[in-house]
């Protein structure tokens, strides 16, 4: 029974990683850049939701919506102000370093406004835990909502990309920006949309994460951000199903490692698995190198 409950906790944590990993993987797939400030958007989402609920006494659902809007706008601003001027830069390192700068900028702005003391986040989910097998197996309501949200987001996003015009534009831009422009696709607009979606999802991930692990500081976003990045690479960066599988596996490995091997070594185990996967399959689990005939 305890194994099952660890497994469910792992899947739940992994679902959060998967949602964050989507942001990394979509931005990488489309703009070919690593947005290392993505993890901090999660933290901003957390503070936005908390402020709405505690200081303005908003209904949690409205607060979540506001947090999503805040992060979406933040994502578009980060892209247009910090990254877009550098997209034509000689070295991709310029964008990478800017992303690290944006990450510290967000942390420090929040530090200035809210201070460094951890704030305790109140769970947005309150319909009660699920008791199975006569109380032998308890599944928290947060875990249920997290896993369901993750599945809904994955299905929704997959449909969005394959069925809508904007989604098809994303596929075209991810493959060849020049050719996409020649099709009449607004490449800058498509990149901004990608940041908007990724950042909005980061807000959702942040609220789900904080509902289960309710301590919020200006640095809360960095570790989940890095792990989600690992999940994205693990599953094959650029691939949406890859982000899903990578995220879930990472969460499960982390929780099982913590439970059965060592709680100190859990993070090291996660990274060791990543290294092994990349040694065996450098493109990640679902990453593919397209073979082109010339």
């Amino acid at each position: 029974m305890s194994f099952l409950s660890y497994l469910i906790n792992g899947i739940s944590l992994g679902s959060v990683y998967a949602i964050i990993a989507l942001g990394y993987t979509m931005v990488y797939g489309i703009a070919k850049m690593l947005n290392f400030a993505h993890g901090d958007v999660i933290m901003v989402g957390g503070y936005a939701a908390l402020t709405m609920m505690l200081n303005l006494n908003m209904n949690p659902f409205v607060a979540i919506l506001v947090a999503i809007v805040v992060c979406t706008v933040l994502g578009i601003c980060i892209e247009t102000i910090a990254y877009r001027p550098l997209l034509g830069a000689a070295s991709p390192l310029a964008v990478l370093i800017t992303a690290i700068g944006v990450s510290y900028f967000l942390q420090n702005v929040v530090l200035l406004i809210f201070g460094s003391n951890p704030k305790s986040f109140q769970s947005a989910v309150t319909f009660g835990d699920l008791q199975l097998a006569g109380g032998g197996l308890v599944i928290s309501d947060e875990a249920i909502v997290t896993i369901v949200s993750c599945v809904v987001i994955m299905v929704g996003l997959t449909l969005f990309i394959s069925k809508t015009k904007a989604g098809q534009a994303m596929q075209a831009v991810s493959e060849d920006k020049g050719a996409a422009r020649l099709m009449g696709i607004n490449v800058n607009g498509t990149i901004a949309l990608t940041f908007a979606i990724g950042s909005g999802l980061a807000a959702v991930a942040g609220i789900l994460l904080l509902s289960s692990y309710p301590s919020l500081t200006p640095y809360t976003g960095s570790m989940p951000g890095i792990k989600a990045f690992v999940a994205a690479v693990f599953g094959g960066i650029g691939s949406i199903p890859g982000a899903f599988i990578g995220g879930i596996l990472l969460g499960v490995i982390e929780i099982l490692g913590r439970a059965y091997i060592s709680s100190q070594l859990a993070d090291a185990i996660v990274f060791a698995v990543l290294i092994i996967v990349l040694l065996v399959k450098p493109t990640g689990l679902l990453g593919k190198a397209v073979q082109e005939k010339v």
Partner: peptide, 12 residues
């Protein structure tokens, strides 16, 4: 504009 090198979307 049909670009040089064809530039078809290979994975589509």
């Amino acid at each position: 504009h049909v670009p040089e090198g064809r530039r078809v979307f290979a994975s589509l």
